[in-house]
Nucleic acid binder design. Sequence first.
RNA 1: GGCCCGUUCGUCUAAGGGUUAGGACACCACCCUUUCACGGUGGUGAUACGAGUUCGAAUCUCGUACGGGCUACCA
Length: 508
Amino acid sequence: MSKKVRVRFAPSPTGGLHLGGVRTVLYNYLFAKKNNGDFILRIEDTDQARYVPGAEQYIFDCLKWAGLEPDESPLHGGEYGPYRQSERKEIYRQYAEQLIKDGQAYYAFDTPEELEKMRQDFKTEQNPSPQYDHSIRMKMRNSLTIPAEEIKKLLNTNTRYVIRIKMPEHETVSFTDMIRREVSFDTSVVDDKVLLKADGMPTYHLAVVVDDYLMKISHAFRGEEWLPSAPVHILLWKYLFGLNAMPQWAHLPLILGPNGKLSKRDGARYGFPVFAMNWTDPKTGELTEGFKEKGFLPEAFINLLALLGWNDGTEQEIFTKEELIGKFSIERVHSGGAKFDYEKAKWFNHEWIKRTEAGLLKSGVRNLVTAKGVIISEEALLEKVIDLVKDRCTFLTDFYDQSVFFFKTPEQYDLNAVKPKWNEAKQLFFTEVIRDFELNNDWKEAVLEKDFKEIAAANHIKPGDVLLPFRVMLVGGKFGPGVFDIAEIIGKKETINRIKKALDAFNN
RNA sequence: GGCCCGUUCGUCUAAGGGUUAGGACACCACCCUUUCACGGUGGUGAUACGAGUUCGAAUCUCGUACGGGCUACCA
C-alpha cells in the first residue's frame, strides 16, 4: 500500500518567477495530476532580509496564468497549513532542540565577524573557501568546545546563537534519485550547516525536511543546484523522522541561458524573457518583461517548458496539458542541463496560435488591439479576421500589425514598393477600377477579383503589376492575406476611399 | 581548490550492444504563390577524446578533457 502522492513547489518570494521555476511547477503539477495526487504550494519566506513585497502574489498570478494552480496553498488553504514558513516559525525549534539532545546538532555562538575571520585565517591556495566543518568546529565557539555550565549562562543571558548540524566524519550518504539513480556523498566534505538562525527562523535545510514531513510530501522535486546539500537533508530525515518516511527525490536538470544557469538578475539581458509574467522590482522600479506580455499563449508556454528536458519517446512535440498529464513520467526527464532556445520557443507559440480556434483567441486579441486604440464594431468580423491572419502571427502581439488595416485606413504607405514602377497607365487602371466598384452590387471577393482582372486585361496590364499597388492601397505595406478578401471585409465604401486616398499619395 | 552532476547535429532531443545514428527548431535550396506568411520537397550538420569489455559499443567500465552546479545565519 503506497501512500498518497503529494508534491510541493516551494519558492521563496524574492522576485520574478523564471523559466526554471515554472518548469519545476509544471513537473510537480503533471506528476500530481497523473497520479491523482495533490500539488501544494508552500512559501519559503524564512529570510526576512530578502523578502520582497508583492512577490508572493506575483507567484500566484503566474501559476494562474499558466493554468497550474495548486490544490493547497496560502491562498487556497488545506489541511496542512499554514503554508507560509514564516507563520510556522514556532514549529521548527523543537526539532532543532531534539537534534541537540540527540547529539546530532550543537549551539554555535560565533558572530558573523568571527566567521569571516575564520574564513580568512584558514584560507589557503589549496582551500580557498574553508567551511565550518569537522576539521574546524573544535576551533570555534560552540557547545562542543565550551563547557556546559558556560553554555547555560550564555543561553540564559540571551546571547545570540545558531544551531548547526554536526556532520558525521566519515560516512557515505547515498540515495536513489528518480532521475539520476544512485548518488552518494562523503559526509566529511560537507559542512555543519546552520539549521536554526539567530533570529529564530529555520534555514531552508531544516524547514524543507520538517515541512515535507508534516505536509506528508511523497515526492520532492527541485533543481539540480540542491544536489550538493542533499546529504544534509537525508541525514536530517534519518535523525528526525526515519528514512522510511522520506519522500523520493528527483533533482531536475538546470535550464541554462547563454552563459550558464538562468538567473533572476539577468532579466531581459538575453533579448528574450526569462520571467513568466512582467515583474517590476519594487525597489528600483525596473520592469522585466514576461512571456505573457511578450505575447505567449499559456498553452504554448507550458508545452515548450515540458519539452525542455523531457519527451515521451515519440516524435510528438505539441502537447495539450491533458496529454502531458497522461504521458508525463519523471523517469524520462533528462539528467543533463538544457540550454534555452528562444527560436524554438517562438516556434511553439506560433504552432499554438495556428492551432487555436479564432473564437478562443478572440478575447486576448481584442484586449490587445483595443488597448492600442482600435475600435471593434463587430465580434463576428474580428473572428473572421483572426482566422485570416493567425498563420502570420508568432506572438499574440503580432495580431495588431497583422490586422489593424481591417479596422483603420492606413496612414502611411510603403511607397518604395510602388512608386518606382508607378505610371499613368496604372493610374488610369485604378480610376477604372473605382468606376467599376462604384457600380458593384455584389461585393464578394470572387466578383471583385474577376472584375479587377478583366479591367487589367482590357488595359493590357498584367494583373501582377497592379495587385501589389492595390495591396499597398488597402494595407499600407506588402503583407497580409489575399487583397480581395481584405476588400470584401472592409466593404465597398472603404475600399474605394482607400484607393482614392492612396492615389493621391502615389502621385505626389 | 574541493565536492557533486553532466557530455549525440549550432540548439532541444530519439536510439538503453547490431539502425545508412531518427525527429524538431534554426539555416540553405527548390515548389506553391498577387505580397507576407502557411504548406510541400530536398539539403548542410552530431555520438568530446583515449583505453578497455565484446564477434559487435553512441549505448557497459575506467581515465582525460570540457561544461555546469554547490562551497552563506540565501533559497
